[in-house]
Every structure is written in structure tokens, then in C-alpha cells.
Design a protein around this nucleic acid. Structure first.
Lengths: 178, 178
DNA sequence: ATGCGAGTGAGCACAATGCTCACTTGATGG
DNA sequence: CCATCAAGTGAGCATTGTGCTCACTCGCAT
């Protein structure tokens, strides 16, 4: 089954829906259907399945930390006792300004994404990280500029075009009467 | 004007709305109002202002790259000719797998967040980054584990509690008749 | 005291939702 | 070859939600 691709959970049609939604987050299902030349029913079903599958993350992702009063973003890389990574992660969870933490391969064990109200705040948070038992060394880098703002659009576009071979089946629908 | 706090764009009430929305992204304005004991009118106005202000980011933020067929995340740090940073950023924009790029303070000039279908894919993308004129050195670290998944909840909670001093004004509304 | 900004319940026309239906279509497979 | 199946489609319908405007009431600053 399947041919070249694994099962991406999100097929070309889903991608088109997501793309349209990215363009206008507040669009109604009806509007999307119209825009994509799909039936309202289809869009509704797709969307339902989409967030059942967890393809749609939480809503907080859309909140801008800057608007919340934390205009600064920094990345703190940390080396830690690898036997205690879970323990460290647990402690980091308790620091609200920590927005995301990854366990990395390579020299650096942890990448910690931090937001802060100002540089003093940042300094304080950096200190807290270093204070976590198991953390051996940290290095803080301030995000000066968001050179490429977070985007999945390019990927979505690619996924959308994968099945859109110019062909538009356009079958079905018209039953007997007209 | 203002007193202790700067203007956070998002006040306690806004934060509560956002929080409720984070808990249930598909909640209707009506449901939110009921849940927060606010009038539908208020919630609607707040939300409208919220995304006018740009406090709400794009929708694509909510799409999971994994579901799109890119289960791997990696962070590529790069050193580059600082005079050509803009140029480099421009080239990076053309690589779809690049999801986010920050200009950093410190030894490392660039932090590039990459998603990939598999390790080979990742290798290819890393190569592309290194090939950008102006990029001098790169170092790739695979994100092995998301120790703390992206969250703003803690910050939102803090913002929400800032003004929620147990007091519930509950004023207004009841005009003459009842 | 007065005006302003923000919140509130009410009301209303219109649109969207959630759902089911009968139907078609393209693949799958007996 | 015909049956079945998953997915799509337009239609219809009752229920909800939306977008909007009102008149009004607070708290606050002028």
C-alpha cells in the first residue's frame, strides 16, 4: 500500500485546508470550502479528523510572548549530568519563563528557550537554570532578531502541491434531478 | 499614566480568555463568556482587539510538523560573515525545511531550526545551509526529545492572576427592569 | 460634577454549525 | 464482472453562534 510516501497523516487536501486557514485563521468552514472548491462536508470532516489526530497543536502556540509582556527571547544551552536529565527537565518546568526545552545530541545536552521582560529578568532566569542540580554549565545567547519568523507555509505548500496534479476530479454530487 | 506596570497589551482579563482558549481552542465566544463569567460582548471585543494588536500569531503555528511528514527537528547553529547576515537570511528563507531563524548575540551568529523527514533529509538540509555564501561554519544538533513542550500557559496564568484579587466586581448590567 | 472608557444584558437578522440523507465515484477484491 | 467500501458531494434542517447596536452603569481622571 501507499506508493512513494509514508502516511503523512496530512494529505494534499488537508494541506490545502491548513494553508487557507493559515492565510485567514478566522475563516469559517463554509468560507474555506468555497475557496478550495470543496464541499462544506469534506472540509468539516477533514478538520475534525485533523485535530483528532493531534495534527493541530494547542492554541497557546498562537500567543505572542511579546504581547504578554516578555519581548525578549533567549536561548540557553546547557550541559548537564546526563544521568539526571529527567530530573533537570522537571525543575526547568517550574520556571514559567522557560517556554520550551529540547534534549539535544552533541556536546550540548539541553537547549532552553526563554522569554523575559528585560535583560535583568533574563539574567535572573539564566541563574535559575544554572542552579538546577545536575546542570553543569550554561551559555546564554540573546535572540537579537527573528531573521525568519516561524513558518510552516513552505512545507504546507509542498504538501498541497504533491497531489494537485492539475487534475480536478470534480466527480460525484449531481444525483438524478437537476 | 499607567502605574507600576508597562502596557502589556494583554491584561489579566485577556490572559484569562487566552487561557480558556488554550484549554479548548474550538470554544465559541459564547462558551468562553459563560465559562469566565463575562459578557459575550466583552469577550468578543477583547478577542477582536487581541488579534488586531497582533497578539495572536498566525495559525500555522498550530500545525505539527510531525503530522506533515517531518518528524525530525534539529537545531543548526552557524557562524557567518556578519556583514552578510541579511543576505544569508534571505537564502535560508528559500529552504522550506527551515522553520525559524534567529540572529543571536555571542559566538554563534545564527540559530536555525530545521525539520526533516529523516536523517538523510536532515543531512541534505544541513549541507544547503553550509553552502550559503557567507556561512562559515555550522554545527547540527538533533533534537532528541522535547523535554518541555512549547507552552505559554505558565506565563498566561501569571498574567491572569495579576488582577484577579479574589474580588469579583460584578457591577453594572442590571438596569431598571428585572 | 462631568465626561470617558469599559463592561453588561438585551435583542435581532443573518450566517454558520452539526448532522443526516441519498447519491456518485474510484479503487479493491471476490 | 459485479459487489463492496471509503470518500466526496449537494441538499436540507434545527439549533447555535455571530456581528452588531442599544441603553445603561460603573470606576476613574479631568
Amino acid at each position: 500500500m501507499s506508493s512513494v510516501n509514508s502516511s503523512p497523516v496530512v494529505d494534499a487536501t488537508d494541506a490545502r485546508i491548513l494553508l487557507a486557514l493559515a492565510d485567514d485563521p478566522r475563516a469559517t468552514v463554509l468560507a474555506l470550502a468555497e475557496r478550495l472548491r470543496l464541499s462544506r462536508n469534506t472540509v468539516q470532516a477533514r478538520l475534525a479528523k485533523l485535530d483528532e489526530n493531534g495534527a493541530l497543536g494547542s492554541f497557546e502556540r498562537r500567543v505572542d510572548p511579546g504581547a504578554l509582556g516578555y519581548p525578549l527571547t533567549a536561548f540557553v544551552t546547557a550541559q548537564a549530568d546526563q544521568h539526571r536529565l529527567a530530573e533537570v527537565a522537571d525543575r526547568l518546568k517550574d520556571i514559567p519563563e522557560i517556554v520550551e526545552v529540547f534534549g539535544l545530541s552533541g556536546q550540548t545536552d539541553l537547549l532552553v528557550r526563554v522569554v523575559a521582560a528585560d535583560t535583568e529578568d533574563l539574567y535572573r532566569v539564566a541563574g535559575k537554570i544554572l542552579d538546577c542540580p545536575g546542570v553543569e554549565r550554561t551559555s546564554t545567547a540573546l535572540a537579537m532578531r527573528e531573521l525568519v519568523p516561524h513558518r510552516l507555509t513552505e512545507l504546507l505548500r509542498r504538501a498541497a502541491e504533491k497531489g494537485a496534479r492539475g487534475a480536478r476530479p470534480s466527480h460525484a454530487g449531481r444525483r438524478g434531478r437537476d
